[in-house]
Computed example of a mutant assay.
Amino acid sequence: MKAELFEVWGDTVDGRHLLYSIGIGAVVSLGAFFVAQHLLVGWVESAQMARAYAMLVGIVGCLAGGAISAALFKPKRHVVELVADPAWRSKILIELQNEYGPLGRLSDLPPATLAELRELDLHDLFADYEKGLQTSAEGFDAPAAVSPASINGGRS
């Protein structure tokens, strides 16, 4: 039998597991509340205070029910990472330079930022871009800068 999947609060869930989780949460939280209320009535002077403390125990029961459900029912989502096209990334860097001016040099960045660029697989992109700028300054061919608008108001 194929599971019927629903989207709840931006996440994908199996309908049967959702119902089971609601049941588990209700039983655990209400059970914790009623047991705590029964036990606390003899310990606490005021019945209202015993009920208030029992509500706190019931909230902890909600968390416990959520943890039990999370352990029993694994996520149904599949994460797919798409790798961006390097040519598209280079084009974006050129457009950024045309719009905002020079992007700076990697050697000016602190080590933490360089480590983050390496972690995101962006360090080589910026290094290649920087090499392209150096070769264009020396007279070699570099990626052509894309002009956002021509002098005559954008008409060709």
Rank of each mutant, 00 (worst) to 15 (best):
Y129G: 08
N152P: 00
K74I: 15
E95P: 07
D124W: 04
L114Y: 11
Y20T: 10
H38Y: 15
R51L: 06
S29V: 00
A3R: 15
Y129A: 00
V60E: 00
L122G: 04
P75I: 01
A149C: 07
L56E: 12
S29A: 02
Y53Q: 13
D85Y: 05
A115N: 12
A127E: 11
N152Y: 10
H123Q: 09
R16V: 08
V35S: 06
G23R: 15
D85T: 03
A115C: 02
P143C: 05
F73P: 00
L40A: 03
A52T: 04
I92F: 10
L117E: 00
H123T: 07
F140H: 09
K74W: 08
V146K: 04
A54F: 07
F140N: 06
G66W: 09
E7Y: 11
L30K: 04
Y53F: 06
P110S: 02
S46N: 03
C62G: 14
Q97R: 11
F6Y: 08
S46P: 05
P110Q: 07
H123L: 09
A36C: 14
F33E: 15
L19E: 12
W9P: 04
G139R: 01
I22Q: 13
Y100A: 13
V35E: 02
L18N: 04
A26P: 04
L125N: 07
M49Q: 08
V80A: 11
W9L: 06
P111A: 10
F6A: 07
A137G: 03
F33K: 00
D128H: 09
D128W: 04
A71E: 13
Q48N: 10
Q97C: 05
L30V: 14
L103M: 11
D141S: 08
A149I: 14
L56V: 13
Y53S: 07
S136M: 12
G65W: 06
K74L: 11
E4W: 07
P110G: 08
R118S: 08
M1W: 12
V13Y: 07
L93A: 01
G31S: 02
G25S: 03
G101Y: 01
A47L: 06
D124N: 10
P75Q: 02
P148A: 02
E99N: 06
F34Y: 09
G58I: 06
G23T: 01
G23W: 02
T12F: 09
I151S: 12
T12L: 13
L125K: 01
D11Y: 15
Q48R: 08
S147G: 14
S150P: 12
E130G: 03
F73S: 03
L125S: 07
P111Q: 12
S90Q: 14
L109P: 01
F73V: 03
R89P: 06
G25Y: 03
D108G: 07
A70D: 14
F6L: 08
A3E: 15
E7P: 02
